[in-house]
Simulated scan of single mutants.
Amino acid sequence: MRQNHETVKRSRGRPQKRCDADTLHLIVEAADREFQSKGYAGTSIMTVAQRAGVSTKTLYKLVATKAELFERTIQDRIGRFLLDVVDDVSDDLDPRAALEHILFAFGVLTLSPETIAITRLVISECERFPEVARAFYQSAIVPVNGIIEAWLTTQKDKGLLRFDDVHITSGLLRGMMIMEPQRTAMMAQRGAPHRDEIALRARQCADVFYNGCKA
């Protein structure tokens, strides 16, 4: 009695290539680690490509210059902060709770060891490489300030908070949240704060600010 056997078809040829978006993500992650450990001047496109597991030709196809690569690492970090705030801070959320959430997300972003390392890089190398300072300012400081100022403006327009100048108020709020722990960490007087420390600081800053500015 003859038995029938199914034939298993195997795919032939080269394995499917990664899409450009996935490859770019690997490159940006590799570049972020290289910039943190070696600085801007010490980072080369070749070592980034090797760390990412791609050829320099592939890297240059997706990112034209080292300055653009640095800017993309900043944008990737800031993008996570923006998504966190936009997704979790709704109009229905109590303003005091929303403020604490924004400050916590801002603290996690700016007080992480990775961001502190990048901030040190920018300060130490901005005179030699002005494109570094420009990328950091335009891709990090401006959009983060914009999110906080937009939220403050909305609360003022609703009559929930009172203050004169939104830009000055945002700067005071951001400074209260991060200046002291960021400064001590950047001067190597202590390590970056843990999440529970950041959460406590966000709660206390939210209390002080909200009680002082509520209408």
Rank of each mutant, 00 (worst) to 15 (best):
97 A>V: 09
78 I>G: 13
162 R>D: 03
169 T>C: 10
170 S>A: 13
110 T>P: 00
73 T>Q: 13
102 I>F: 06
154 T>C: 02
90 S>M: 03
115 T>E: 14
133 A>G: 15
111 L>G: 03
171 G>D: 02
95 P>S: 02
71 E>S: 15
114 E>G: 12
127 E>A: 14
74 I>D: 02
82 L>I: 10
141 I>F: 15
165 D>V: 00
92 D>P: 02
102 I>V: 12
109 L>S: 09
118 I>V: 11
128 R>S: 12
131 E>W: 04
102 I>M: 14
172 L>K: 04
114 E>V: 03
140 A>P: 06
75 Q>K: 08
77 R>K: 15
79 G>C: 06
127 E>Y: 14
147 I>K: 06
125 E>I: 11
114 E>C: 07
108 V>F: 08
117 A>R: 08
148 I>V: 15
124 S>C: 10
69 L>G: 07
156 K>T: 01
141 I>R: 10
82 L>C: 11
131 E>C: 13
101 H>C: 03
80 R>C: 07
135 A>P: 07
97 A>S: 09
101 H>Q: 07
75 Q>D: 03
115 T>L: 09
123 I>V: 14
131 E>K: 10
144 V>K: 05
109 L>Y: 04
97 A>H: 07
77 R>T: 08
83 L>Q: 11
106 F>E: 04
72 R>W: 10
116 I>K: 12
109 L>W: 05
156 K>A: 14
166 V>Q: 05
93 L>Y: 07
117 A>E: 03
147 I>H: 08
98 A>D: 01
109 L>R: 06
149 E>R: 13
146 G>P: 04
136 F>I: 01
91 D>W: 07
170 S>L: 01
75 Q>Y: 09
151 W>R: 10
147 I>W: 04
157 D>Q: 12
120 R>Y: 05
